[in-house]
Design a protein around this nucleic acid. Sequence first.
DNA 1: GAGTTTGAAACT
DNA 2: CAGTTTCAAACTC
Length: 787
Amino acid sequence: MDVVSPELNSLLPDEIMDTEAIAMEEELSADHLAAPPKSEPEPPQVPMETEVPEIVSLCPATTSMQMTSTSSGAQCSTSSGTQLLLTPSGLISGTTTSVKTTSPAVTQNLPKISSVTVPANHQLIINKVSAGSAADGKSPGTAVLKPEGQKLLVAGLSKTGQPIMLALPHTWSKPATTQGTGDAKGQPTQIKMLTTVGKPVIAVSSASQLIGSSSTLQAQQLKTLQITKKPPVSTAGPMITKLIITKALNNKGLSSSASVAPVVTGRVVTQSTPVTPPRTVTIGETVSTVPQNVSGNSKVAISPLKSPSKLTVVSVASQSPNSPQKSVTLPLNVALGQQILTVQQSAATSPAKAGTSQSTAQTVKSVQTVGGVGTSQFKTIIPFSTPPNVQQIQVPGSRFHYVRLVTATTGSSTAQSSGSTNTNPSIQPAKPVMMNAAVRMSVPIVSAQSIKQVVPKPLASAAQVVTTSQTPQRLIMPATHLPQIQPNLTNLPPGTVLTPAHGSGNMSYAVLPAPYVTQISQSAFVTLTSSSTFSTATPIQTQARLSLNGLSTSEAASRPRKPCNCTRSQCLKLYCDCFANGEFCNNCNCVNCFNNLDHESERLKAIKSCLDRNPVAFKPKIGKGKQGESDRRHSKGCNCKKSGCLKNYCECYEAKIMCSSICKCMGCKNFEESPERKTLMHLADAAEVRVQQQTAAKTKLSSQISDLLTRTTPAVTSGGGKLPYTFVTKEVAEATCDCLLEQAEQAELTDQPQAVAERLILEEFGRCLSRIISFAGKVKTDCPINC
DNA sequence: GAGTTTGAAACT
DNA sequence: CAGTTTCAAACTC
């Protein structure tokens, strides 16, 4: 099956020879067809496995045409005359003739590929060519061969939608059979196509009839179409007739100019993004679920495929097409809360001379989930263009910090030195940028939860964002070099931006929980759609209501954080809740706060210091058990001595969980059978109910009063207005009684003496009357004539 | 709102 | 690792 000569292989860039990575991809593709993947152990460092469904398809000629327009494909000649064409998707075409990818003729009038097989060695082998008219449009997914020149041109889409091409050598026989039925008898000239794309690779028999079924991977929003056909035994053609089409469902509303980075087995090959990116839909199409930015070399890789991963990986790289060839490998074993990531990143533009160990892409792999605290632990890695300009935007009247991630401009950007090492990181404070600078935020959030909202990029250069359901107060941290803590990414506070240690990696990563993205998206969206009027950028925050017997993690995630009151810590110690939660202070009461973008360097130092002291300092203390909230427990345990663990001093009690064996508390009463705890919980529940009822009653009363006031009742006027008693209608009286009854219940629940209860009821009655009178007086004042 | 208490974080 | 100090939140008055 292996028909590629070793010398050809030796000429291929390393990244496309990464069969290991491809193996991963194929393994993943198998998962598409099988049951949802389990949490199988992963290698400690896994090549890029974007969770964009892998699509390798045979596409019409237009694909290849479009591909050439990307202009980033590198064509390299070897000593043997073999030319290697590295397409933007990272595929290589090895031919003995020149490969013209820029000529439209190449993509037209080519005989069709009749068979493509994918052996286990991850090599796409095109076995046979079927005859066929070049203009045959019935098989849009079939690549065609040009009678002359290149023998074969296989155009397809990479998993990220980038076209891929394969040129066949001269020796490959021209098509001699008719199309359609797919005569596969001819001895196929096999071309080893090094599918750096990996993942579902199409193997099409010569006479493949698309007989298949589709299935939907709901969690990943993928459609997998498996088309199989067993050729006749007598057929000498390829035996593999399974066509796997994996399609990523497009998330509506994406920018038409979106481009998808070629993710080549975990690597992204530099490409330039045309204004109108290639977008060919044939057998399979990869339509990015990721909103893309318009200009620059945007590379987006999302990978929720493997599992209902909470991890979202976003790469928004802005790499200069003319940037010098720099190959930097930045392996990062990242454990972000519940995700361990392996991030490899580099930027290489020399496919013909790829180092054996250098990667040309970013690899982010969700390896495992080790438990967490619900949605708040969704992590997102957002590589920003480097230097990442983060603009902090203060919105008057808003309780949010707005952070803009802005495309680095040539003039303002400070290029990272290519020769720098990890030992000498440069901290680059965020610099303000022009308001009209392009906001580059391609933030796909593909998690176990379906994408709830896609906010299209409102402006040409505006960000596209995807929001999730949770919108806690989270703020992205500034994009800054943090090489010194990259090895310890596990515990980085959310929002920390990581950049490659080496300057060539023109990307940086922002580690932030998905809620951050929401906030970013909100700010960006509103800002950009409101004609740059920040005053309107006020994301809606809903106060999550406490449950009676605990605070759900989702609620906790969505609950706005209390403002801190730090005075001496500069909000750069874990004393500060804002800092401890990886958030910027915003609308806090702190003094001399450094927990903001203005003090980015100090903040980063503080983060590092915290991590030095405690590598898990920024991990949530309350871990999530297997069975849900009931198993939540404090990771360290409390150390209470006087509070009996029944006050909010106790972190366990505060988190509404019981103390566990790891706690070192004394006189603990915060255990299951504790009568004190039960009493407290009962009282807390009762108080909660009372508050709710009272609120409801008051609301009802107020609404009824208001409703009454809107009526045009014949008033008994006195001095031009209605007398107060005229407002005491039946509805008002009922609402008042509700309030009084509620007050009575409250007194009863708290075991108040009868005298006290009566007093409370009377006071409540007085308040009700006052409210009525107040309304009456207001009406008399406001509309003495009409009322 | 001021003062006190508390326990986690920080420090030694 | 243990003891002490610092700190900010929780709590009380």
